[in-house]
Write a protein that binds this DNA or RNA. Structure first.
Lengths: 213, 213
DNA sequence: ACCTGAACACCGTTCAAGT
DNA sequence: ACCTGAACACCGTTCAAGT
C-alpha cells in the first residue's frame, strides 16, 4: 500500500469514474458517454468529477490510457504463449490488437482516436503509448533477426506494420470494408494476408483459423 | 438542369447545410459541429434542417459522402497526372489520400470514421465508397500487371494497401506516432517506406520529396 | 412543401457553499 | 480535500402552427 488514502466518503472516485466511463462505452457506445452519466453511475453529483478531472477530455485521456494498458497486456500475453516463435508472436500480437477492437469497439475507438492535445497534458497516456510501441518494436526486431522481416530500422518497420494492422482493424470496425469482401473473408484472414506482404516466408495455412471465439 | 426546383425562400437549404457543416469542421473541428450551428450559418431556424435530414447522423452521412467524393476526385487527378506510370499512380494516389487528411483533418475524420449504421440507410454514401474502392482496385491491378505488386486477388491486395495507407495517415493525424519518429521522417517518407514493403522494386529516391506544399 | 417558435430533456462547466 | 446544488449557455429532437 503506497498511500493509505481514504477520502471523504467515496473510496476512490477517480478510478470509479474511469471504470464507469468504460462501462458506459460498452453498453451505450461512444455517443452515450457523458461526465454527468459517469458521475451518476459512480453515485456522486454531476459536479464531483471536476475534483478529479479538469474536464471531459481529461476523463477521456484516462480512459484512453487504460485502453493502451489493456492492449499492452493482451499483446504481452500473446507473446508469452509463443516463446521462441517470432512469426507466431507477430501474428498473434496483431490478432490481440484486433480482438480488443472486436470485443470492446468503443473503448478501442476512444483509445486510438487521439485526444488531440495529448502529449503535453497527459504524461501517463504518453507513457502507455510509448510502452506499447516499444513492445511491438521488440517483436519486430526479433522477426528481423530471424529473417522474417526485411532489414530496416526497427522503429520504421514497426510504424509500417502497426499502420497496416491499425488501418485494417479501423476500416473493418467503421464498416468501411465492403460487405462483399467481409462476406468472403474473415478479419483474421485479411489480417494474415496483409501481414503476409511484409513477411518474407510462407505462412502456414493452419494459422488462418480464428482462435477460441 | 435536371430539376428546376426553386423552393420556399432558400435556394437549396440541403446543400447549404452540408457546406455549412464542412466549413464548421474546418474552422472549429469535429467537436464544434452541431445541427443548430449549421442552421444558423445557413440563416434558418434551428428546426429547419429537419425538413431535409432525419437527424444529425443523416447530415453527417451527407458530409461523409461529400468527403468520399473529394477523395475520389483527388486520386483521379493524381492518376491523370501520370499516364502509363502505375508506380507513380500508386504513390501519388496514396499521397492524395494523405493530403486530404492533412488539409482538412476534421472532414477526413468524419468521412472515414464510419456513420455506423451506414450501408442500409445512406445509399449515396455506399455508392461513393464503392466508387473510390473501385478506383484503387484499378490502380492496384495495373501495378500487378506491371509486376510491381505480387499476384493476388486485386480486391484483397487493395484492402491490404488501403489499410496500410489509412492506418498510417490516421495514426499520424491522431498524434499516435511518437514525436521522435515524426521529427526524423516526413509523413511522405513514412508513406513511401510503407508502400515499399508492398512494391517489388526499388523506389527512386527523388519521390521522397514532398510535392508543392 | 418548407419553415418558425416554444418546449423538453439532456449536456459541459462554473461557483458559492457546505463538511 | 472533497463534494453538493443552483445556475448558465449550449445541445438534439418534437410538435403545433404558420405561409
Amino acid at each position: 500500500m503506497p498511500k493509505p488514502k481514504k477520502p471523504y466518503h467515496h473510496g476512490d472516485l477517480k478510478n470509479a469514474l474511469i471504470q464507469a466511463a468504460i462501462e458506459i462505452l460498452a453498453s451505450e457506445g461512444a455517443g452515450g458517454l457523458s461526465l454527468r452519466k459517469a458521475a451518476r453511475r459512480a453515485g456522486v453529483s454531476h459536479a464531483a468529477p471536476y475534483a478529479h478531472f479538469a474536464d471531459k477530455q481529461a476523463l477521456i485521456a484516462a480512459v484512453s490510457t487504460e485502453g493502451y494498458r489493456r492492449l499492452h497486456a493482451r499483446i504481452l500475453a500473446a507473446n508469452a504463449r509463443y516463446p521462441g516463435d517470432p512469426l507466431r508472436r507477430l501474428i498473434e500480437g496483431a490478432w490481440a490488437y484486433a480482438a480488443f477492437a472486436l470485443e470492446d469497439p468503443d473503448h478501442f475507438r476512444v483509445t486510438l482516436s487521439g485526444v488531440v492535445a495529448r502529449e503535453q497534458d497527459y504524461p501517463e497516456l504518453t507513457q502507455a503509448t510509448a510502452a506499447s510501441f516499444g513492445l511491438v518494436v521488440q517483436i519486430v526486431a526479433e522477426c528481423q533477426a530471424a529473417g522474417l522481416l526485411r532489414a530496416a530500422p526497427p522503429d520504421l518497420m514497426t510504424v509500417s506494420i502497426w499502420s497496416a494492422v491499425h488501418g485494417l482493424v479501423s476500416l473493418a470496425l467503421e464498416g468501411q470494408l465492403s460487405h462483399i469482401i467481409l462476406e468472403r473473408y474473415t478479419l483474421r484472414r485479411l489480417l494474415i494476408q496483409t501481414l503476409g506482404e511484409f513477411i518474407q516466408c510462407e505462412i502456414p495455412r493452419r494459422l488462418y483459423a480464428t482462435p477460441r471465439g
